[in-house]
Computed example of a mutant assay.
Amino acid sequence: MSNGVQHKILGDKVALYRRPNSSRWHCSASIKGKQYRSSTKEESLKAAKDVAQDWYMELLNKDRFGELSSGKTFREAAKKFEIEYEVITNGRRSPKWVQGHKDRLRLHLLPFLGSKPLKEITSGVGQEYWTCFGLVESI
Rank of each mutant, 00 (worst) to 15 (best):
R92Q: 13
M1C: 13
P117W: 09
L110G: 12
H7A: 04
H26K: 00
F74Q: 01
T122W: 12
I121N: 10
V5Y: 08
A15T: 06
N61R: 15
P117F: 10
T122H: 14
W25S: 06
S39K: 00
A47N: 07
Q99E: 15
Y36E: 12
E42Q: 10
I139S: 11
G114W: 04
G126Y: 08
L110M: 12
C27L: 06
K79D: 13
P95L: 07
G91F: 05
G124V: 06
S2G: 04
V51I: 09
L109S: 01
L68N: 11
W55A: 05
K96H: 11
A48P: 11
K119H: 12
E120W: 05
V98F: 07
K8D: 00
S22A: 11
N3E: 06
E67T: 10
W55L: 02
Q53L: 01
Y36C: 14
P20K: 12
F81C: 09
G71P: 03
M1S: 11
L109V: 01
R19D: 01
V87S: 04
K80Y: 14
L16T: 01
G33E: 13
E43K: 00
K96N: 12
K13N: 02
Y85W: 07
V5D: 10
K49D: 05
K72W: 09
C132L: 06
D103M: 02
K41C: 06
V125E: 11
V14D: 02
R37F: 06
V5W: 04
A52R: 02
W25K: 07
V51F: 03
C27Y: 07
L68V: 09
W25V: 04
E76M: 13
S94V: 11
L10S: 06
V14P: 00
R106W: 00
S69D: 14
K80Q: 15
T89Y: 06
G126C: 12
Y85P: 04
L110P: 15
T131H: 06
Y56H: 08
N3K: 07
G100P: 07
R75T: 09
G100I: 04
G4N: 09
M57H: 14
V5E: 11
G71S: 13
K46Q: 08
K41T: 08
L45T: 02
S23M: 09
L135T: 03
S22V: 03
R19I: 01
A52Y: 06
W25L: 06
L16V: 04
I88Y: 05
S38P: 00
K46H: 08
Y56E: 05
A52G: 05
G114E: 05
I83L: 10
E67P: 09
A78T: 15
R104I: 00
Q6K: 10
G124M: 11
R106M: 00
K46V: 14
R92M: 01
V136W: 14
R19N: 01
T122N: 07
Y129W: 11
S115N: 10
R93S: 14
K72A: 14
F74Y: 04
L10E: 03
Q53H: 02
I121D: 06
L107P: 00
E82H: 13
K46G: 05
G33M: 15
S115H: 12
G114R: 08
W97Q: 14
L105D: 01
F65I: 15
L16D: 03
S38G: 01
Y56M: 06
R93W: 10
